[in-house]
Write a protein that binds this DNA or RNA. Structure first.
Lengths: 216, 216
DNA sequence: GTCTATAAAGTGATAGAC
DNA sequence: GTCTATCACTTTATAGAC
């Protein structure tokens, strides 16, 4: 149906784009190099030439998007922390909106790739993600503690997990039946913006909920 | 490390248990019949004899847990609707706690299997889930509308998606590095109970949050 | 109901020509 | 940097003995 991706991009980029879309739909193990190179319109051997192996290609698919996304999260968090005390909604927006920005960059499928990563037990991948981006999550934890001084650390961490789950799940819901070369439509963007706004309202209320008595 | 599962179970059940744990860790495509039958301590040909094919085995892994879980959700929802107006927390608990019950049945890995299903684009599987359990989700939608008469349907549906995402993600976080034959420990159960309680508090506040003006 | 053996196709990776 | 051809394996599934 859509065998060849935009030919104006470099071979390397076409492989990454095709990989992102196929990984989103079928997972890592469920996507073969043959499918992938056919969809990208490149030769089978090109993946190993440009990336070395399938595993290294997977890591590159993550790094390409997450470097940008976590940098944006950190920058937005810094801006939110400029006001004292920081506003909870601003901190949450700093977490959520960079995920939204993926859509403008043609990376709408990537959130579903993240969902696959969450579902899997892939030690090397998890260590890679944790080492490279863990400090940003820790900074969000500190910022949330500033917004909600009554909260204990465990509960805040749990609530941040709820937010991450809701974000990944609700956002990857969309943007699926699309070829590797099609940009997000205006409607897609509005729908995603709506989800982001609703998620901030929903989670802000959740974060402000009364804290349960510490167990034990 | 743990090649043979409990031998007191029938071949069929040992296959299902091994499949559930391996699917949880590596997904469907990432789990081979050879791995699976070796872990279950049964012959390679046994899967095809008992289930017909790998795909039918996958469907059976879902059906075994979801039939119980959705029946429990529906029963708990009925109880919550006995009081008028129904209490939001009761409705949310009816949705969340049956997932928790999986742990007592040794199905703690199953929530991660669900996470894989969400991440994937598997048309037949989605149709199966939607046809078999969709009506329960619609009943939850109606119940939530009774609890929150000011809400519009779209927003409620979105917030229910947030809850489902947070539930799947936060609950599948745990219960992983366990052999197919080990039961959940008392600590596991307490930790899961804590997550469930916190999730109900968090999402109840989220559901009660002010509703954004309708877009457009 | 369980086994062995094997068919038929697909897998990631690479050597070597151009 | 791109290609073809191919290696060495693994995959699901099944035929047929016991």
């Amino acid at each position: 149906m859509n065998p060849v991706a935009t030919p104006s991009l470099s071979t390397r980029e076409r492989i990454l784009d095709a990989a992102e879309h196929l990984f989103a739909q079928h997972g890592f193990a469920g996507t073969s190099m043959r499918q992938l190179t056919a969809a990208a319109g490149v030769n089978l051997a090109a993946v190993n030439y440009h990336f070395g192996s399938k595993d290294k290609l997977i890591a590159e698919v993550f790094q390409r998007r997450l470097d940008t996304m976590y940098q944006a999260r950190l920058a937005a968090l810094k801006r939110a922390l400029a006001t004292t005390p920081p506003q909870l909604e601003d901190v949450l927006r700093a977490f959520v909106e960079p995920a939204l920005d993926l859509i403008h960059d043609g990376g709408s499928a990537f959130l579903r790739v993240m969902a696959h990563a969450y579902a899997e037990t892939n030690e090397p991948l998890w260590r890679f993600l944790s080492e490279r981006y863990g400090h940003v999550l820790r900074e969000f934890g500190l910022a949330l503690a500033q917004c909600l001084p009554d909260a204990d650390r465990d509960t805040l961490h749990l609530r941040l997990d709820f937010l991450a789950g809701a974000l990944t799940y609700a956002m990857s819901d969309l943007g699926l039946p699309r070829g590797a070369d099609r940009a997000a439509t205006r409607e897609d963007q509005m729908r995603y913006q709506r989800i982001a706004d609703e998620l901030i309202v929903f989670s802000a209320a959740g974060f402000r909920a009364a804290f349960l008595p510490k167990p034990r």
